[in-house]
Computed example of a mutant assay.
Amino acid sequence: MGGAMTLTLAALAYPSVLGLSTVSSSPSRVIADTQWGPLTEADRDFVVKVRAAGLWEYPVGQIGLQKGSSKGVITASQHLIDGHAALDTTCRKIAPMLNITLPNVASPQQVGFVNQLKSDSGKQFDTDFANILRMTHGSIFNTVAKIRSTTKNSLVRALADQANDTVLDHITVMEKTGLVDFDQTLFQQTTPPKLPDSDVTPPPPAVGQPEVVLTPPPTATSTPVDIDGIAGGGNTGGGNAGPGASPSPAPTAP
Rank of each mutant, 00 (worst) to 15 (best):
G2L: 12
G2V: 05
G3C: 10
M5L: 13
T8A: 12
L9D: 05
A10Q: 11
A11W: 01
A11Y: 03
Y14M: 06
L18M: 13
G19I: 00
L20S: 06
S21A: 12
S25A: 05
S25V: 13
V30T: 04
V30A: 02
V30M: 03
A32F: 06
A32K: 02
D33I: 12
W36M: 10
P38S: 09
L39S: 11
L39A: 03
F46D: 00
V48S: 01
A53C: 14
Y58T: 01
P59F: 09
G64S: 14
Q66M: 09
S69V: 15
K71W: 14
K71H: 15
G72E: 10
V73C: 04
A76M: 14
A76N: 04
H79M: 08
L80W: 02
H84N: 08
A85K: 00
D88I: 02
C91H: 07
K93N: 15
A95G: 01
P96T: 01
L98M: 13
L98Y: 10
N99H: 05
L102K: 04
A106Y: 00
P108F: 10
G112M: 04
G112R: 02
V114Q: 06
N115T: 14
Q116S: 14
L117W: 10
S119I: 12
D120C: 14
S121D: 12
D128S: 07
F129W: 04
N131R: 14
I132V: 11
I132N: 09
G138Y: 03
F141C: 10
A145E: 08
K146A: 07
S149N: 11
S149Q: 08
L155Y: 03
R157M: 06
A158F: 00
A158Q: 03
L159F: 07
L159E: 07
D161W: 01
Q162S: 12
Q162V: 00
A163H: 01
N164L: 12
V167D: 12
L168H: 13
L168W: 07
D169Q: 09
T172W: 10
V173Y: 15
V173A: 02
K176E: 15
G178A: 06
L179Y: 15
D181H: 10
T185Y: 07
L186S: 10
L186V: 04
L186D: 12
F187W: 12
F187T: 06
Q189I: 14
P193D: 09
K194R: 13
V200C: 02
T201M: 01
T201L: 03
P202A: 00
P204Q: 13
A206K: 10
P210V: 09
V212Q: 01
V212N: 00
V213A: 08
T215I: 10
T219N: 07
T219C: 08
A220N: 04
T221K: 09
S222T: 11
S222E: 12
S222I: 01
T223I: 10
D226V: 03
D226Q: 13
D226R: 01
I230K: 05
I230Q: 02
G233C: 05
G234L: 06
T236Q: 08
G237V: 04
G238R: 08
G238C: 08
G239M: 07
G242M: 12
G242R: 04
G242V: 00
G244D: 14
G244P: 08
A245I: 04
A245S: 15
S246C: 12
P247M: 04
S248V: 05
P249V: 09
A253V: 09
A253W: 10
A253L: 08
A253S: 13
P254Q: 10
